[in-house]
Amino acid sequence: MIANLPFIAIALLIGIAFAIILLKKNMIKMVMGIGIMESAVNLFLITIGYREEGIAPIFTSAPEGSVMVLPTVQALTLTNIVIGVAATALMISMIMIIYKKYGTINSDKMRRLKE
């Protein structure tokens, strides 16, 4: 049970993120929802790389027969954090322009492109 706790947290976080993205009309909140989803995915990646009693994956001077956590997923998480920062920054700056031009950040009002 306790080992599954991170996965329950991930499911909850993704659920919350989708609820925010689908229900909130405020664009800033939507971006926050995407941020939560990103964190959930990062948490997921870190969790699948975790090993009981694992040590940091540094091969030089590692004790004999020790278990290491998986390094690949940590690299993936770092990459995803960087990508997430870029995506969030771009989205926020676009919302700024939308606010300047449309006077609103409500996604209901932001619909000059439709049909």
Binding site: I14, I21, I48, A87, M94, K101, R112
Partner: peptide
Amino acid sequence: KGGIAVEGAIKYLIVNTVGGLMVLFSIG
């Protein structure tokens, strides 16, 4: 173009970022 291009871009970006995260989730 008076904000309208940004509107199209942010819709595309939000939708595809969520899609991209789901791709990463399934890769995980």
